[in-house]
Each structure stands twice: as C-alpha cells, then as structure tokens.
Simulated scan of single mutants.
Amino acid sequence: MRAQATEFLRALRLHRENGAGAPVADHTDAPRALRRAARRISGSLHTFQALLDGDWSEAIRPELAWLSGTLALEHAYASRLDRLLQALHRLSGPASPASPASPVSAGYPDPPPPGLPAQQSADRGAPDRGALTVGAAKAGALLDRQLTLARTRAHSTALQALGSSRFHAVADKVAVLASDVPLVPGAAGADLRPLAAAAEDRLTDAVAALPLVTAGSPYNAAALIHGLSPDPSPHPQDTPWHQVRLLLRLHRYAREVVVGDDTPVGVRLLAAGEALDRHRDAAEAAAAAAQAARTPRIAPATAYALGVLHADQRHEVEAARYAFQHCWRKEPAGTP
C-alpha cells in the first residue's frame, strides 16, 4: 500500500507539472496513473480491511472509488465510440470473399465452437448489408456526436475533480499512507494468505452463482431474447458478470501482495480477465447503441443500423461469456 501510495503521489506530481495532462490516447498520462494507483489501494483496503483501522478505511474507500470512477469515464467513452464505429464498418462494409460469415466476427475463437448451429453462425455474420449501409453513415455520425459530447463532459468533470477540495483531501490521506499505514494492533506480523484466500473464495463462489449455466454453450438464446428486446432497462444478466470481473481483479491484486508482483500471472487468469473485459465493453457498447436508437425523429434506416449494431454487440457479450467459461474450466497451472 505504501508503494501504491507513492505511485499515486508520483502521478499527482506529473499531473501538476503537465497542467491539463496528456491526451486520453496516451497510455502513460497522469490521470490514468492516478486511477490505477487509487484502484489498487482501494483493492488492498477491501481485501485486507481486517488488518487496517476500520474508521480510516471506511472514510477513504468511497473517496478512492469516486476518484477512480471519475477518471475512467473519458477513456471509456473514447473506447466505446471506437468500438462501435469499427463494428459499424465491419457490419456494413463489403463481406470477405473468403469468409463472408466468419465466426471470428462474432468474437468466437477459430475454429467455431462446437454446438453453434451453422445457420445461426451464418445469420450472425451476414446482416442485410444493402439496407444497413443506407443508415450506417448517419448512425455513425449520431454515435460520434453523442459519445464525443459525453467524452468532452467527462474530461471537464475529471479536470474539475482534480482541482477540487475533495480530491485534495484524498491526496492528503494518500500522502500519509505513503509513510504510515494505519494498522490495527498486532497486524504488523499477520499472515496475509488467509485473507488473500478469502478473496479467491469470493471469486469462486461468484462464478459458481452466475445466472447462466447455458454460458457453457456457445449460444445463449435466453439471454439474447432480453438483450435484443426494446426494453431500455439494463440486461438482468450483466450485473453478476460485472461483479465477477471486479472480484477477479481483487483476487489478482491480493495474489500480487502475497506472492509478489514480479510473479507472472497465470494464463488462465489473464484469459479470464480479458474475456470479462470484452464482456463489459460489449455490454456497454450495446447499451450506447440502444440509447442512440431511442433518439427522437431519427430516420428508419438509421434506427435499423443501430438495431443491428446493438444485436451485434449483444452477440459479442454472449461470445465473451462463452470464452470466459471455456478458459475458467481449465485447471489452473501449478503456480503459487
């Protein structure tokens, strides 16, 4: 925690030296480094809270979550727009002569997973490109306008947050943490392994409780029925998967504390994390497409293109769930 607090302060100094900071595309920009350090400190507080002063932990954890969430929005909107525009181009552009309905476009590995009916795979990769092309340009322009505006507002919000008294209060607490971790009496020599094991157990239980036993097969029609409906409410099956993604991240952080961050992360955990990241990105992109489709007085062709885009991203959600279940069933390698 002292090391992460030091990283936080180093990123804060970089931010102050650079003024407004580097653009979002720069992977070394100060706001991203601040967010990363805040997220890791918060993760350690969550897992090892029994060893830390309770009042102090309860006071700083919500503030770190606020900071991390605020700083994440600008990059999230930029990535979402890029994902949706690429998907629109793929769906409305000319089909590949070699593979007009390649399962790769559905997010499935190559070769296609067993159990996916051939007709479903063909339907997945071959929308009505003629009708789709008519509205794709306007759909892309609408998404660009909406998400660019959201990104600009998120950028302004992040700058305001970094200049606020609330942020300075968080920075002061982290500065103290860099030199003095508020431990409870007797915590200095405590064994951290049981607490890290408890974080892994929470992850295992959450995976076991996922609402989709059918995610073990590559086509989950029950989820798509709701996902492709006009209901504007969030997909009821997405939240438990997002929770698993959070718990997987906490497990990885706890593992780094126990075995050291120099120990390589197992392929199974990396693949599971990547699948859950794709799941989150596709679910949020689908929601953005659905929100754009509810814009008043848009042309039918534009609404059609956005509907196809929404369906495409919900299929990507199901593909990510299948990929997660596929890699999670593999036995972990014999690493510490």
Rank of each mutant, 00 (worst) to 15 (best):
A3S: 09
T6V: 03
F8E: 01
L9R: 13
L14C: 08
A20I: 11
P31E: 00
L34H: 04
S44N: 07
F48T: 01
Q49C: 13
L52S: 14
D53A: 00
W56I: 09
I60L: 15
L64H: 04
L67G: 15
A72T: 03
L84W: 08
Q86F: 11
Q86K: 09
H89A: 15
P94G: 04
V104I: 15
G107W: 12
Y108H: 14
L116F: 03
Q119M: 06
S121T: 09
D123W: 06
D123Q: 03
R124E: 09
R129Y: 00
G130N: 03
A131L: 15
V134T: 08
G140M: 07
L143C: 10
D144I: 02
L147T: 08
R151F: 03
R151M: 03
L159G: 01
S164L: 04
R166G: 10
A169D: 06
D172H: 05
L177V: 15
L177E: 12
D180H: 04
V184N: 09
A188V: 09
G189E: 11
L195E: 05
A196P: 12
A198P: 00
E200T: 02
R202C: 11
G216I: 09
Y219W: 11
P230I: 00
Q237H: 14
T239L: 10
P240Y: 00
W241M: 14
Q243M: 00
Q243T: 03
Q243N: 01
L246W: 14
L246V: 15
L248C: 05
L250A: 06
H251G: 05
H251C: 04
R252L: 09
R252V: 13
E256L: 12
E256A: 15
V257T: 14
V258I: 02
R268F: 07
R268Q: 13
D281N: 13
A282E: 02
A287V: 12
A287F: 12
A288I: 11
T295S: 07
A301C: 06
H315I: 04
V317A: 01
C327M: 05
G334E: 07
G334N: 12
P336D: 04
